[in-house]
């Protein structure tokens, strides 16, 4: 009995080998498991490859560019300049104006969208006549190409052309009216999307619960705040998260409505101008990275502070 523990274990293992148990224990993955894993990896392969190729690799590349001078107008003067581009951007009033404009559009837009979206959701959920009609028409703004809608608003407010244009001023050439119209265009297009997400939440509120609440003496207003809203809070947060991130990326509407004139550029717009018009890839990339980081912070804040559940996070279905 001088055998070391390891030797003893080996001996024991050998003993068990005889009846085949160890063989099974060691071979942890059964045929079925292995086939399943293989198929799983094969099926996600192409999607993962494309997402990596188009999103992951380029963002790393963008980060690299942002550390370089990379001004296409002076291609020979390229050099590695560490965080100089970030310093330039972060000390530029243009960037901070754009940042302020973007935040303004995001916050005001998302708030209006939430309120109007909730109203529209309630209408779509509760209407006793023409439900299909309402839902179909509500989808139109969602489905329409943003650029098309933007042109419609632009022409509507263009002096001497549009049905909304005032007699003797050009709203799209002034800062505040422009911002107002940009927000209007954003809100118009995305309220229906918001409303659909909220409506899905409303559909999950059991009718019986509302009836019970009304038997308990809650009026419609109280029922809404004390029963419906707490129950659909997850839906509200998810919708709000998506819209906030989306609003922060605002580009199409501003491009068409004002082209960023009168300091109405969003961060995406100034990044675009630096990249494509100014051909300053270093500065543009630094802006891109900053936008990427801000987006991350917004998403993180939502998930951290509001506990917004990421859709599909419950991907593991129970068998």
């Amino acid at each position: 009995m001088t055998a070391t523990p390891t030797a003893a274990a080996a001996e024991a293992a050998e003993d068990r080998m005889d009846d085949g148990t160890t063989e099974i224990a060691r071979q942890r993955h059964t045929d079925a498991k292995r086939a399943e894993r293989k198929l799983g990896l094969m099926l996600v392969g192409p999607a993962v490859f494309i997402m990596l190729a188009v999103a992951a690799y380029p963002i790393i590349y963008a980060f690299w560019l942002s550390l370089n001078k990379a001004d296409l107008r002076q291609p020979d003067a390229n050099e590695f300049i560490w965080f100089d581009n970030y310093v330039t951007v972060l000390s530029s009033p243009i960037w901070w104006t754009a940042f302020g404009v973007t935040m303004l559009i995001t916050i005001v837009g998302a708030t209006l969208e939430l309120i109007l979206g909730m109203l529209l959701a309630i209408v779509m959920h509760r209407t006793i006549v023409g439900r299909g009609l309402v839902r179909t028409s509500a989808l139109v703004p969602y489905a329409i190409v943003t650029v098309v809608a933007a042109f419609s608003w632009r022409f509507a407010w263009t002096q001497g052309l549009g049905w909304l244009a005032p007699e003797n001023s050009a709203p799209l050439t002034e800062f505040w009216p422009s911002i107002g119209i940009i927000i209007l265009a954003e809100v118009w297009k995305t309220v229906p999307f918001m409303a659909l997400l909220l409506m899905a939440g409303l559909a999950l509120v059991p009718e019986d619960l509302l009836k019970a609440a009304s038997m308990d003496g809650a009026n419609a207003w109280k029922r809404f705040w004390m029963v419906t809203v707490p129950l659909i809070k997850p839906a509200i947060l998810v919708a709000l998260l998506f819209r906030t991130l989306d609003a922060f990326r605002v580009f199409d509407n501003i491009f068409i409505l004002t082209s960023g004139s009168n300091q109405t550029s969003s961060v995406s717009m100034v990044a675009y101008s630096n990249l494509i018009r100014g051909l300053n890839l270093g500065i543009g990339s630094a802006m891109s990275v900053l936008i990427f980081i801000t987006t991350g912070i917004i998403a993180f804040a939502f998930i951290k502070f509001f506990g917004a559940a990421a859709p599909g996070s419950d991907a593991e279905g129970k068998r």
């Binding site: 999607a47 993962v48 997402m51 990596l52 188009v54 999103a55 992951a56 690799y57 380029p58 963002i59 590349y61 963008a62 560019l65 991130l245 922060f248 990326r249 580009f251 961060v267 995406s268 990044a271 675009y272 990249l275 494509i276 890839l281 543009g284 990339s285 802006m287 891109s288 990275v289 936008i291 990427f292 987006t295 991350g296 998403a299 990421a310 859709p311 599909g312």
Partner: peptide, 20 residues
């Protein structure tokens, strides 16, 4: 990763994609 891509600001990819 899919969630990340869906939150991605497309503008951040314009330059690198342009160059690539």
């Amino acid at each position: 990763m899919a969630l990340l891509v869906s939150m991605f600001p497309q503008i951040a990819l314009v330059t690198p994609l342009f160059k690539i």
